[in-house]
Design a binder for these strands. Sequence first.
DNA 1: GGTTAATAGTTACCCTAGTTAATTATTGGA
DNA 2: TCCAATAATTAACTAGGGTAACTATTAACC
Lengths: 134, 134
Amino acid sequence: MEGLFRQYIRIYRPLMKSLNELLEKYQLSYSLWQVIVYLKDEGTSTLVDISNYYQVEKPSITRRVHRLQELGLIEEVPSANRREKIMELTAEGKRIYQICREEITALEHHISKGLSEEEQQTAFQFLMKIQDNI
Amino acid sequence: MEGLFRQYIRIYRPLMKSLNELLEKYQLSYSLWQVIVYLKDEGTSTLVDISNYYQVEKPSITRRVHRLQELGLIEEVPSANRREKIMELTAEGKRIYQICREEITALEHHISKGLSEEEQQTAFQFLMKIQDNI
DNA sequence: GGTTAATAGTTACCCTAGTTAATTATTGGA
DNA sequence: TCCAATAATTAACTAGGGTAACTATTAACC
């Protein structure tokens, strides 16, 4: 399929731009949002978990986590293991998650306008499968 | 379709990484490759054309173009209009294009392994359609 | 049980690649 | 002819990531 990856990459920046504009209202960016989403799903996690999931190096995750702590959206939970930091969303973090979740879902619906659920399913399958091959 | 965009974004970085590793052998990066591809398709173009196509600001394109000129892969073609610079691939640029084209196509095939042509078509359609909505 | 290896997180420094604002040169239209 | 728009550039800044080196802690092994 000629041009598939080219198109994939070409769309990334504009998409990211609209997401970042949306999140900017809450002093967030998509990279910070990713951490929030991960913690929302997992409940608690260490920095290494996040690093592995998004395949981003630890120092980058350290920075994201510090920023989110400054914003009061996540906090450390006490742990027996003093080597690792276990993080979770604060009440404020959960609140912001809900607000942004709704806005992002609305944006996604807008962007997917005119596309059948089936088409979207196929696209999703495609993205899931290529992940393993990369 | 829950998680579609999340998955889309999550895959971007690993994909970009493998493409950049591939291109690095030729002192290229994907952002430089984009300019080469555009000139290969269009024959000649101005910086503004490239800027519009990829939705990247002009100063960024100026840098990409200068870098490719240094590498001897593109050159300016004389033009009556002294305000705009019309660029095209050099012979060396075309040669490098062919080499990288083959490697990138092989990588893409590898990544799309196990996916039917139809699935890929649907994914491509999806990407084309959402472009207009972003 | 004590030494060694592995792991989690951090710090410092650098790189890629983008952005905005301002500037120059040129062109096209009133 | 003069003014507005356009193409390209420069300078200064930003986001975000990467590597290497380091500390602290934990796990593993003899």
